[in-house]
Design a protein around this nucleic acid. Structure first.
Lengths: 143, 143
DNA sequence: GCAACAAATTGGAATGGTTCTAAGTAGCAA
DNA sequence: TTGCTACTTAGAACCATTCCAATTTGTTGC
């Protein structure tokens, strides 16, 4: 199926190959760690999780691999304020809700219809390649 | 008139007083510099502009004063990716368009109706205090 | 399998925007 | 004045990230 947007673990080698890159143990474990727990870890958090499986990995490699995964469109990098970059395995278009109390990030589904409406506010001559929508506030844990 | 959202230069002293803060020459000149040229300068750019009027000011003070102005809701701080924070004198709700070629930021007016629609996608329990919308792409200079 | 080349990883140093700190200055209150 | 507090200042510290130079790993052609 060619239209899937959430890649399976195997997709990694393929995507890398498509870009002329190699599938390495480091890239595999990092990708795996991000898919396993579908939250929004920072590079440091990824580093911590990966070291459980691969204690010898370096932080520089974590940064390098995350950058590679972002280039290959396998994960997305998101920034909130000036906090450390977070990495997001959700490749569908969506907004983020940043909970100020807990610091946690929640994905917010966006209807395609709304995305169109938002893009349509751009004046002529503006060609948007990407759109980032971030809410900030209080989120009560869902019952 | 109590509903104006773009403050006049005089509003500075009032707003500061409301928060129990003093109006200082440094705060005045920084606020003035930001209102004068309505773009999205970084702290460094503000520092450069302010030094024309007040050569002895320090960068730390520029950061301090900008922070104060943000607290008093006289300017807004906006972040793009991990680039230096920019300061925005436009207090109306609006989106930003980040032109990848020139690096410049353009304000995009948002209809109130659209803002409501966007906020309405939040599930129950999510209480958003602020909303940031950023486009990224190519902008042709308007004719 | 081996040489040769390219890609990837590594630790540590460097970078750069921002914040912190401790000292000095300035304005207000008794 | 004497104090008190707010504010400014220079420089050090911070910290996420990137850079660098050296090594390791993988791949390709023989």
């Amino acid at each position: 199926m060619s239209t899937m947007t959430t890649a399976s673990p195997d997709a990694l080698a393929q995507r890398l190959a498509d870009s002329g890159l190699r599938s390495t143990p480091q890239r595999e474990v990092i990708y795996d760690v991000i898919l396993r727990k579908r939250d929004h870890p920072t590079a440091d958090e990824v580093y911590a999780r990966v070291r459980a499986d691969m204690p010898s990995i370096s932080l520089a490699t974590v940064y390098n691999c995350l950058e590679t995964l972002v280039q290959c469109d396998l994960v997305r990098a998101v920034n909130f304020e000036r906090a450390p970059t977070r990495y997001c395995p959700n490749l569908h278009p969506h907004a983020h809700f940043h909970d100020e109390q807990s610091g946690s990030i929640h994905d917010i589904q966006l209807p395609a219809e709304l995305l169109e409406k938002i893009s349509s506010v751009l004046p002529a001559g503006y060609d948007a390649k990407s759109l980032q929508i971030t809410f900030r506030g209080k989120a009560q844990p869902a019952a």
